[in-house]
Amino acid sequence: MADRREMLARLNPQTVRFDVGQGGGAPSLTTSDIAAALGMVPAGLGREVMEAVYLPDGALRHRPKLTEAVLAIVRPEFTRRARALADAEADLEFVQAIVLLGRRGMSDAQRRALQQRKVAVDQARAAAWPRNTYQHLSRMVDAVVQELASGNRCEACRGAGIVEDKGCAACKCTGMEPLPDRRRALAMGCDPSAYPKRWRPVFEWLLSELHQAGEVAARNFSRALSNSDYVPEARAA
């Protein structure tokens, strides 16, 4: 079945008409129908992503809305990861202080506790995003939108990001066939050698979030085209 989001291209400025050349009959859906259905899709990240991918000419006029919607999901995630690292480091410092205050040789229990805290710090540091994430965010969003627009869907999950109610391991829930790291790095304007460790986790997280939000908007758009009594679908938290 054709992706009905492709109909949004009719809303871009055209040099041809879509209401002629069909054997004299009117098309089943006019540009007015499509615009009305788009207007029924709830405002927010999903709609902005869908328009950026399938209606780029129109989306350019309100790119700030996409930026605001992306920042609304990036900021709490960035903060959560930064706090997790700060908490892990504080726990490690606390255990180290206990060992020093004991003024005796380290016990086995203290040694285990210290090792556990070090491991926790390493894990939290690996999960934390670079401090200059916001400076790279605009280029990263552009790269993600371009990748979504490429239509290079993951074959394992058919673009859903989920296989048998579990996250797709092949695409890491992004719904897209992974591109080479170097291509993604160049698309977002970062050093290809730094991308795998510093930027890949951020990029894949953002790609997954924008893909899933766009899919919800797509289902709402399709239902709005088909059913005048449609109730918009809310994105799962």
Rank of each mutant, 00 (worst) to 15 (best):
V70A: 04
D191V: 11
R235P: 06
E93K: 11
L206P: 00
A69T: 02
T79C: 04
L55K: 02
R183K: 11
V216W: 09
L179Y: 08
L71F: 05
R10T: 06
S138L: 03
A26K: 15
L186E: 15
C190A: 15
R103S: 06
A2S: 06
F221A: 00
L186T: 15
R235T: 11
C168T: 14
T31A: 15
R153H: 04
P232F: 09
N132I: 01
E164A: 14
G46E: 03
A72D: 10
L38Q: 09
E147C: 05
G21K: 02
R10V: 12
E51F: 01
L55V: 03
E164S: 10
A52H: 00
F221G: 03
R125F: 03
W205E: 10
A26G: 12
V16S: 04
A213D: 12
G23L: 02
M140Y: 00
R131D: 13
A9D: 08
G161M: 09
N227S: 14
R75W: 01
L29G: 02
G159L: 07
L92A: 15
Q96D: 12
C173W: 05
V99K: 07
A237T: 14
Q135P: 01
L100R: 15
S107E: 13
L225W: 05
C157W: 12
N220M: 08
R17I: 05
R125A: 13
T67M: 06
V141P: 06
A160R: 12
M7W: 11
A156Y: 10
L38Y: 00
G46Y: 04
T67W: 05
R111T: 09
E147V: 05
E215V: 03
M188C: 09
L45V: 10
W205D: 05
Y54L: 04
G58L: 10
A9R: 06
E6W: 04
P178V: 12
A43N: 11
R117Q: 14
G105H: 04
I34T: 10
Q123C: 06
H62M: 07
A169M: 12
K118G: 11
